[in-house]
Design a protein around this nucleic acid. Structure first.
Lengths: 278, 278
DNA sequence: CCCGATCGATACCATCAGGGTATCGATACT
DNA sequence: AGTATCGATACCCTGATGGTATCGATCGGG
């Protein structure tokens, strides 16, 4: 199967409408229809059920959609990494969530810098979903936090495990407690969870304020507008007006270093080795 | 990048000779040369260094080779799984090493069969490298054993952990010991390790006999020609004339269930859930 | 050192695949 | 019943792909 056919298939599968898919691909609808038919014939598999007015995915089509997206993504990532590899100065791009423990990060960067063959580390901060740059090739490696970030498809090593704290306005009654339970902080009536944008930029439904970054989040908490449960290490990010209270029954957060499974980068192998020895 | 270009690139990268690569691809050398040049121009990246008599990979080319192989493999696997998904009777193909603990397998299959939406499980026995069918799409899921089998690129859940035993001819002096050390069984002069074929069918160098399957291995041990260190659960496979002796300092073997990270199969999710509850 | 063999690159040519427009039959809605 | 919309099919044109011919560069043998 050629990449062009896979792109056509994924577009139709996502739109479930040949006309919109054709427009998205920048071609006319008839060649798209023909290409999909030829693909189905060559595979010997029906990927879509369709009448003249309705298109749905078959089971085979559903499975291929997930794998097709991953493959196209991997191809884009591979092209990006190939381009990046030609740079005179080899670097590693490390993707991480804004607010990730400065202490862990500093230790990692210092320890790696002490390696004889260390290359420059370029930090790529993400306000959310730090795994995405790993998927699309903009990053070589990422610090991720389970269970929040998906590590599907990547190789990982565990770096640390920690509890979670509820970050509350210092004026809130719960802020004086030695610890709280998840049920107590999960749905505070006056402190609804803030909302992050999805990959397509739209926000999920909810009463909480829309935010773009960690700074906005902390500011809103300070203003008594929201609260959040974060890993213990985020305590270093707290400032006046904010209080962190341990959440006894919150799941532990595991910080892992993740990388694409087929990487052959020596520099990356060194970084992973150093990271697991911290 | 089209699949055709990636296939051309991988062929040249593996052969480091345009003529041989062209022959392998079934095309003439000039269009191959031109296609690679055009690819490099479009990517803005040199993938090969070449004189008129020598071809080597650049750093970018080396990185792309590993990722390119994985992508082409994933594409082949995706096509296969799409074809398999059209079967009237949905099944899951489970890849596993011949000799995998019958006890664990039976428990898994029984527990899964009790699930309301269980589908038929088709067992795909491998004499070695049970991860390969997962890579190439012939299997949906696999039982693998770390550290012997690579789980790179797959999602996994741990099922069990066990020690290892040295399987020796019962007549061997070490067979009467309560336990042995790795150094004692790793290089027995009269019992050199048997040799498995590689993916391309050729055997690595070594004094041990060439074997194709587990039965041959056990038979050779019984004949006093070799020995092997295997997980504790293989004890059930021992028959008269063979003795299993615990190897105190052997690394533990972790049995995991592995699957492709982008699978959306409901049946597979059920199997994994059942497996982790054994 | 020279010659021949081999290799990758370039030029040119023929064929066919891919994308276009036109139009069809089927379906859903008014 | 009529109209609008959708996916499929037919036909056509252009450019991409793979062919052969041939070049310059490089390596090895005499």
């Amino acid at each position: 199967m050629e990449t062009r056919e896979l792109r056509y298939f994924v577009a139709v599968a996502e739109e479930l409408h040949f006309g919109r898919a054709a427009e998205r691909l920048g071609i006319a609808q008839p060649p798209l229809s023909r290409t999909i038919s030829q693909l189905e014939q060559r595979l010997g598999v029906a990927l879509f059920n369709r009448t003249s007015r309705k298109v749905t995915l078959t089971a085979a089509g559903s499975g291929l959609l997930a794998e097709g997206r991953a493959i196209l993504g991997a191809l884009t990532a591979a092209e990006r990494r190939a381009r990046h590899a030609t740079m005179d100065q080899p670097t590693l791009v490390l993707s991480l969530k804004t607010g990730t423990s400065g202490e862990l990060l500093a230790k990692l960067l210092d320890a790696y810098a002490a390696e004889p063959d260390a290359v420059a580390i370029e930090l790529l901060f993400c306000e959310s979903q730090p795994d995405r740059p790993l998927h699309d090739g903009r990053a070589d490696v990422a610090l991720l936090h389970q269970p929040f970030d998906t590590t599907d498809g990547f190789d990982i090593e565990v770096l640390s495990t920690e509890g979670q704290i509820a970050i509350l306005p210092s004026s809130h009654p719960l802020a004086t407690r030695p610890h709280v339970l998840m049920a107590e902080v999960k749905s505070l009536p006056q402190l609804p969870p803030a909302r992050w944008p999805g990959p397509d930029g739209t926000y999920p439904e909810g009463p909480g304020a829309e935010i773009h970054n960690q700074m906005q989040l902390l500011q809103l908490i300070e203003l008594g507008r929201t609260s959040v449960v974060l890993p213990e290490s985020c305590r270093t990010n707290l400032r006046e007006g904010l209080t962190g209270v341990p959440v006894k029954d919150a799941p532990t957060v595991t910080t892992v270093i993740a990388w694409p499974p087929h990487s052959r980068s020596r520099a990356l192998a060194d970084l992973v080795r150093v990271a697991t020895r911290l």
